[in-house]
Amino acid sequence: MAFVPPKESFAGRVFPVTIGTGVQQTFGGENTLPFHSFEGEVPNRPLIAYEIQDVPPEDWPETVRKLYDGVSDDPVKWAKYCEEELKAKAVALRLVGTHPDSKDLSAEDAAKTVTDVLGAIKVPLIVLGSNHVEKDSEVLVRAAEAAKGHDCIIGKAQEANYKTIAAAAMANGHKLIAMSELDINLSKQLNILLTQMGFDKEKLITDPMCSALGYGLEYTYSVMERIRLAALAQNDAVMQPPMLADVGMYVWKIKETQAPEDVLPEWGSLEERGIAWEAVTASSLLMAGAELLIMRHQKAVEAVELFVDELM
């Protein structure tokens, strides 16, 4: 008798999430472990969004900042550049300038930026706050209103501010990122709280919090893996939203992507090192179950797309 490899099948399935109104993108929807298309259905590719900011990226290392010279002084130009030149499938606008320690831009400023960027691109937009709990609950509410009708992703809602942000996302027809800090049980708890206030769990994206290779990647990896197993094997509906890996922000601030070649010549080319670091972090988290990635360097994005081509 011919050998038949055993197949593992699961009762649960990750919710597919579609975003955007002009060009639409869908991610999630699989009923098997990442890329296990030999065991189940993997209907959609992971989606990679290019990260842009409302203010010039002064704290990004030169190796990635220089890619956006001439456009990064204006989020509208920057977004168009990503769509037209880099063929971005989605854009993630981080409103980092609203942080009180940055430029402390107002919610109105943020809303205008969102409106302007939406007017310039056709691909879906992800709108991210500055990760300041109080400020985000003002900024993201106005941003969600400004983006009404564009079917964006708004984020990130955390335990301390989820109510206002979720209410605004719900009222304006957006998807929502729910972020908790590397704790699978708190991640589930936040998703429960969101569904209890009436937010549709099929419109959620879980962010268990990212970390870069060498800086706790294994924690993110493990939490993501366990979330996915709860979704599939235990058929736990609140754990079935797709997951986000917010890679670029974590990778491009570590020593390995910043230390100059003259200081650490044995580490090789700084630029290649940074690209490799972002690509390896991203592809590892795809293996752990992430379906949505936010990244910065074009060459890293291209490497990850190639990786996905190989596995799909």
Binding site: I184, N185, I192, R226, V238, M239
Partner: peptide
Amino acid sequence: GKTLYAHSYLEM
């Protein structure tokens, strides 16, 4: 260990 723990597990 058949259900993932969350503080609100009784409400689910």
